[in-house]
């Protein structure tokens, strides 16, 4: 808002809002593209759809320069420790878009090797349905995320301290009868599975 007595080029606002405004318009995505959705992610960056219109065209392939992880495609059992490690390597503040049915819920791949939704193991801000989602949908998710940042963000990152509602989802492990269960827990620090229990 403008303040009386000062020139019109001076505005007064909350520091949180200013920080949110800056953060939301310069999202740097980290394309964690594993499968089909990765090609639609490329199409979103290419000529017809052009993600640069939303200030998110600076795709960086190193997690240390990014603040938005777009998980595009299904995440297999062997890939999940890598995903967790990349998520931990990203600097704060950071957000995550789960693009496509497979990343969000496992999609059609309800098999032994596919993680049934990445939100069971890492936090997710925006889910995009579709198999794969159209580029327009991905653009909409970027807009939604910008809206979320503007609404809830604080400069000190206080919103990240509140655990999200319903996270993580109920473990599917209980659906497997005890006789069928085989415990081989993963460890993202070493990216190997250790035998225990």
């Amino acid at each position: 808002m403008a303040v009386e007595g000062l020139s019109e080029s001076v505005m007064v606002t909350q520091l949180d809002k200013l920080a949110n405004w800056v953060r939301k318009n310069s999202l740097w995505p980290m394309p964690f593209a594993t499968a089909c959705c990765g090609i639609e992610l490329m199409a979103t960056g290419a000529s017809r759809h052009d993600i640069a219109r939303f200030g998110a065209e600076a795709m960086r392939f190193t997690p240390r320069q990014c603040d938005l992880m777009i998980v595009a495609g299904r995440v297999a059992m062997k890939m999940l420790p890598v995903l967790q490690r990349i998520w931990l390597q990203m600097p704060e503040p950071k957000w995550c878009i789960s693009m496509g049915a497979c990343a969000s819920s496992g999609g059609v791949f309800d098999t032994y090797a596919v993680v049934q939704g990445i939100d069971r193991f890492i936090p997710v801000d925006v889910y995009v349905p579709g198999c794969p989602p159209r580029p327009e949908q991905l653009l909409q998710s970027v807009i939604d995320l910008q809206d979320k940042i503007q609404r809830t963000g604080t400069i000190a990152g206080k919103e990240f301290q509140i655990p999200a509602q319903g996270h993580p989802p109920r473990s599917l492990a209980v659906d497997v009868p005890p006789t069928e269960r085989m415990v081989a827990p993963g460890n993202y620090a070493t990216a190997t599975r250790l035998q225990s229990e």
Partner: peptide, 25 residues
């Protein structure tokens, strides 16, 4: 193997027309 998703196992559980959605991918 970082994207191994069990396509061939799924083929043993879906009928000839249903499997087309998996082959696509």
């Amino acid at each position: 193997g970082y994207l191994h998703s069990g396509f061939e196992k799924l083929g043993e559980h879906l009928d000839y027309n249903q499997y087309v959605t998996i082959v696509d991918r």
